[in-house]
Design a protein around this nucleic acid. Structure first.
Lengths: 238, 238
DNA sequence: GCAATGCTGTGAGCTAGATGACATACGGTC
DNA sequence: GACCGTATGTCATCTAGCTCACAGCATTGC
């Protein structure tokens, strides 16, 4: 029994190491340190729609994504949701806990079946404190995300729904776009409600505004997916 | 002449060193490194209302505040403004340029006569890359500010003006509050327009809402300053 | 002390967009 | 291929808060 579980541990560590190697942030970390991490890490497979953490949960670990997609969002008691960002393979999330370990103030949820590795906050913190290059790279990620949020804030306050939706579609096109005969298809099944959450609006308003865009020939709706036909036209609304 | 300017330089460096010592972020930096910084730094005195940088300006340096107060805000072409934060003595600002050196996307402006020291981005970056503890401390600052912004975003989307203003007043009370016989006085001359910029509203609406608060006995207005009389009452509106 | 400039109070519209309420369509799955 | 849960289309209604407009005050500088 002990033997079997040792084997299992060894297998898990090997797998963990394999996963950690795929995280761009950890690229410069020397092999021995990475092995240490692999020993401290836990691998989890999260089914679609499952919540990973909620506001108030302890902020005691950070997460690396090895597959699938994770949504980070602010939620209110009465079920309203504001999506901060989607994170995909290779990204980290829940990383702000490293600065002080206070409870979460956002929600993380798997959008499709996801594979993630979790690392205790202290272990990661020690790693950062031992490696200036890594600590700097970490600061860069936090800073980039802060800049995105600041831009989002600006949009939310100053722009109307048309402008915000147009900007969102272009952004999604850039991130998830695949070529299509009629234009750029957003390779991401996304509901109107999700779009509303991303720009701080409502489902109904998105439906309406998308229909307007379609009428103007700016895009086409193909099932549950959007095809951008006139990107510069959309840009003009931004 | 050369002699005189050498003396001037020496004096400036000494003054710069003195200033840098007062920046909490730099506390752990060894004396020799700090001297190097002092040689690279430029000291500036900025009069009230003067703009320090605008969106589009090169992001080639970071700033330390040694006196006065600086406002960082997003601005639109047509003059609307959304204040991200006030920064005071000991704080840094313009720090996001360190992550990549792209142009500014916000404005920084002195709210009262300010003394700041500027440091070229590369110098600061090198310093971070040479000192893991410092790099980590930097990440913590960036992260704390990101968290504040995320909270602000949530408030802007989900809360009405009453709630946002109440929260703002409590926050200002905490940050700048001084005891007063009737309650907690906000020790900061602030116009209605400034408050509006802080919570994404308008001057008129702030005037109105403040008057409502006063009528309810939640606060008192003493000239251009606010006295919080019932903090828990305000908290209830949040 | 007197401009001149900037701040505050107030009120009458107006409008973007939220809400609420359906009907319809889609897409898995048994 | 029938069924059920989920997503979409649409419309009528409501309202918070923005705009515009102007009058009265308070500060600042000369």
């Amino acid at each position: 029994m002990a033997r079997a579980s040792q084997d299992a541990n060894a297998r898990d560590e090997k797998r963990a190491l394999w996963y950690l190697r795929k995280i761009p942030l950890l690229e410069g970390v020397p092999a021995d340190k990475l092995s240490e991490l692999a020993a401290a890490v836990e691998i989890r497979e999260i089914p679609r729609r499952q919540v990973i953490y909620l506001p108030g949960d302890p902020g005691d670990r950070i997460f690396f994504i090895n597959g699938g997609r994770v949504k980070c969002s602010k939620v209110t008691r009465d079920g309203k949701e504001l999506t901060l960002a989607y994170r995909g393979a290779g990204h980290i999330f829940g990383e702000l806990c490293v600065i002080d370990g206070t409870p979460r103030d956002e929600m993380a949820e798997a959008m499709k079946n996801a594979i993630i590795t979790e690392l205790p906050r202290e272990v990661f913190q020690d790693l950062l404190l031992s490696d200036a290059k890594l600590a700097f790279a970490f600061a860069v990620i936090v800073g980039e995300r802060r800049r995105q949020i600041e831009t989002k804030l600006e949009h939310l306050v100053f722009r109307d729904v048309q402008a915000k939706l147009a900007a969102l579609l272009l952004e999604l096109g850039e991130e998830y776009g695949v070529e299509h005969e009629e234009g750029l298809q957003i390779g991401l099944k996304i509901t109107h409600q999700e779009m509303a959450n991303l720009i701080g609006s409502t489902r109904e308003t998105i439906s309406l505004t998308l229909a307007q865009f379609k009428k103007k020939g700016l895009l086409d709706l193909n099932g549950r997916t959007v095809i951008l036909k006139d990107q510069s036209g959309l840009g003009a609304l931004t």
